[in-house]
Lab assay of single mutants.
Amino acid sequence: QVNIAPGSLDKALNQYAAHSGFTLSVDASLTRGKQSNGLHGDYDVESGLQQLLDGSGLQVKPLGNNSWTLEP
C-alpha cells in the first residue's frame, strides 16, 4: 500500500522509488517545479508512476532490470 502526499513531483517520485524498490533515472530539469497529486493505494510500478506523472506532460519508459526513466 502506497501513501504519498501531494506536492513536489521530485519528492513524490523519490518516495515511490524507495517504497517500491525500483531505480528511477531522471534528468532533474524534467521534473523541476512540477507538482504531483500524490498516490494512495496498491499499484504496480508502471501504473503508480503514470499516476504520479498525471498532468506533468512526462511519460514513463522502462529501461529493464527494474529501472525506469522519464521523457517528455
Rank of each mutant, 00 (worst) to 15 (best):
Q59E: 08
W68V: 03
L39G: 01
Q50N: 12
R32A: 15
S36P: 02
L58W: 03
L63D: 07
P6T: 05
N37E: 08
L13P: 04
L30D: 07
L53D: 00
L13W: 02
V60A: 15
S56H: 11
S47R: 12
G41P: 00
V26N: 05
Y43W: 12
Q50K: 14
Q51D: 05
G55S: 06
R32I: 14
L49E: 00
A17F: 03
I4C: 06
A5M: 10
Q51T: 11
L63T: 11
L70M: 05
L24P: 02
K61C: 09
A18G: 06
N37D: 08
Q1A: 13
S20K: 15
D10S: 09
G57H: 05
D54R: 14
E46H: 12
L13Q: 02
N14W: 13
D27C: 12
H40F: 13
A5C: 13
N37P: 14
Q50G: 07
A18S: 11
G7V: 05
S8A: 12
N65F: 10
K34P: 07
G41V: 05
S36N: 02
K61I: 13
G57L: 05
K11P: 03
T23W: 09
Q35N: 12
V60W: 08
G55P: 02
G33E: 07
Q1D: 08
G38S: 01
N37A: 12
Q15S: 09
Q35S: 11
L53M: 04
Q35A: 08
K34R: 07
L52E: 01
L13I: 06
T69H: 07
D27N: 08
S20D: 04
V26D: 05
S47L: 09
N66Y: 06
V2T: 07
N66S: 05
S29I: 10
L58P: 00
D54W: 14
Y16M: 02
Q50H: 10
Q1C: 15
K11R: 12
L30V: 08
Q50Y: 09
Q1Y: 15
P62I: 07
L58H: 01
H19E: 11
L63A: 08
Q59P: 00
D42P: 08
L52F: 01
D54V: 15
E46T: 09
H40A: 10
G38M: 03
Q59N: 11
G38T: 03
G41Y: 04
